[in-house]
Lab assay of single mutants.
Amino acid sequence: MSGIALSRLAQERKAWRKDHPFGFVAVPTKNPDGTMNLMNWECAIPGKKGTPWEGGLFKLRMLFKDDYPSSPPKCKFEPPLFHPNVYPSGTVCLSILEEDKDWRPAITIKQILLGIQELLNEPNIQDPAQAEAYTIYCQNRVEYEKRVRAQAKKFAPS
């Protein structure tokens, strides 16, 4: 494992614990031996107030490669969400998460999670990743928002 990646992720964890947006979660997972795995984080993004996503808490896994922060983490909703920019596998399609697009090593975990929260309610229809959600979003916004509200209710924190 890269010392650069681990040191950056340790800084990220410290900064997150000191200050993070209300309702968001970002925690490194534990290895079988109980030690912390900084390369694999369990996160959760709350649906934004005043949107059909409100009330939901959407679980996301963030996986970092050894060359982080040169390369972005892979962000994957578990379980996958109904959304035009979420692949059926759950992987998020967002330009700041793509090395050859808008990724920059200075982007923080907090910025990534806030960017994904923004994307939930403002899909990028130029870059669809899920045919069904994309089609319904474009053709029947009322039905799309109904499905999103049902999903938010399903993923409401207990």
Rank of each mutant, 00 (worst) to 15 (best):
Q151P: 01
W16V: 02
R104D: 06
G56V: 00
D100W: 05
T51R: 00
L57R: 12
F82H: 06
G115C: 06
T35H: 06
N121R: 11
P128A: 13
V92D: 06
N121E: 12
A156V: 08
L94S: 07
K49D: 09
F77D: 00
C93N: 03
C93V: 09
A26W: 08
A15Y: 15
R141P: 13
Q139M: 12
K30M: 09
E12N: 06
F24S: 01
E12L: 04
Y68G: 02
S95W: 06
G47Y: 10
E145I: 09
E99W: 08
E42A: 14
V148G: 02
P28S: 05
P73H: 02
V92A: 09
Y144E: 01
E143F: 07
R13T: 00
N124Y: 09
N40S: 14
G23K: 08
E12S: 04
S89M: 15
R104V: 05
H20G: 01
F77K: 02
T91N: 11
S2M: 05
M39H: 09
F64L: 11
W16N: 01
L113R: 01
R17H: 01
K14T: 07
D33P: 01
P21R: 00
I112F: 15
P105T: 06
G55M: 13
T29I: 10
P88L: 14
G90R: 01
D67Y: 06
Q139I: 07
D100P: 09
K14Q: 04
T51M: 02
A10Q: 10
L63I: 12
Q11H: 12
L120Q: 04
G50K: 14
P46M: 05
G23T: 00
Q130Y: 06
Y134L: 04
A106G: 11
K76S: 15
E99P: 11
R149C: 05
E42Y: 12
I107R: 06
L9S: 00
Y137N: 00
P21T: 02
Q139K: 10
P73A: 12
L97G: 06
N37D: 14
G3H: 08
S70D: 05
N85G: 01
N37Q: 14
Y134G: 05
S2Y: 12
R61F: 11
E12D: 00
V25G: 06
E132K: 07
T51F: 05
Q151S: 03
A131R: 05
D66M: 11
S89R: 05
D102F: 08
S89D: 13
K110L: 05
V25Y: 08
Q111L: 13
N124A: 05
D66E: 12
T29L: 15
Y134M: 09
E143P: 05
E122Y: 11
K74D: 15
M36N: 00
T35P: 04
F22E: 01
R104P: 00
C93D: 06
V25N: 04
R104Y: 01
W16R: 01
E12H: 05
D100A: 13
P84I: 14
F58P: 06
K146C: 11
P79W: 14
L114F: 12
K76H: 15
L57T: 07
E42F: 10
T108P: 11
L38N: 00
Q117K: 08
Q139N: 11
Q151H: 04
T91R: 09
E78K: 15
K74A: 15
Y68L: 02
D66H: 12
S7Q: 09
S7V: 11
A129H: 04
C93L: 04
P84E: 02
F77Y: 03
N40K: 12
Q126D: 10
P28M: 05
N31F: 09
P123W: 02
F82P: 02
M62S: 04
N121G: 08
Q111Y: 15
N124G: 06
P105G: 10
D100H: 14
E145Y: 12
